[in-house]
Amino acid sequence: MTIALPDTALHRRAGSLTRHINSGVVIFLVLFAAVALKQPSYIEPAGFMNFLRRAAPLGVLAAGQVFVLVSGGFDLSVGSLITLSVLGASMITGGDPSLTGAAIAALYGIGVAVGLINGIAVAFLKVPSIIATLGTLLSVNGVAMMWSGGSPRGYLPDNFRAFGRFVFRDVPLVGQLPLSVIVLAIVAVLAWWGLHGTVFGRRVFAVGDNPRAAELAGIRVDLTRISAFVISALSAVTAGIMLGGFGGVSTDVGQGLELQAIAACVIGGAQLMGGRGSITGVVFGALSLFALFTLLNLLGLPQALRDTAQGLILISAVASGAYRQRTGG
């Protein structure tokens, strides 16, 4: 008995240790090590910062998406909302730098509206979120095309594009610090506080885990769901503003990003159908996915195999998670 006791305690500690190390962090370290082996400049500060800069929009998107995933839903509309943000920004500003502030305010207004529509369709009209956000995906894409006349027009003023491309030079320690990395850090801290540090965050977990129990405990399930969709939409607008700075105006900037965001969350240990997930995990999940894309580029594989690699990593992340859960490890 006395021999057995420390034994089990040891096992439990080992078990909890593996459980506390997030799968997203592990996958990121492995993939980034592979990237660095292939191209050593990536571990230098400048190379790493540039990597972070380009991965930042996906990180922001995943940090918003995880609120919806933890609450038990999906948000498929974020990709088209990004397209709408970029096209909308070019239509509103028309290249005029003085209109940047107004454009950003208008985009966030649109984001809140789309989030509310998603949330209301799910919470009050009781449409399953996969269908509801598919509907808004189609509609938002249609609105973006109507607004821009089907082809990208105009260009974005430089002060708007700064969110994607401005870099602070001569920063101590890291040398250079892109503005988009700062945005990612701020969004990650805000999202971490929102999900892990507030009563609202607890409610999101409770709703995702068991909506009926949450309701009986006095939680407004509908309002919690709607807020989660609004947060996801706001993060999509933020990612859209950053992506506008990267590549400029095009009609397919957001294409496929909704799946990448969900993939990032899943790699980071978020559970579909709700109740589990962490901001640290999903941000590292996004970095992992981006490291994977970088690695495929460095290996000279065709762009199309990105999808294949993404599919494989998605299935294996979830399968290993399911296996760990079954074996209690």
């Binding site: 899943v266 579909l272 159908m273 993404q310 599919g311 494989l312 079954r326």
Partner: peptide, 18 residues
């Protein structure tokens, strides 16, 4: 493998498409 059907088929779709 007890992978959620959404993820399993999303993943296999990506693999095929790629």
């Amino acid at each position: 493998l007890k992978v959620s059907p959404l993820i399993a088929t999303l993943g296999s779709g990506l693999i095929l498409q790629g």
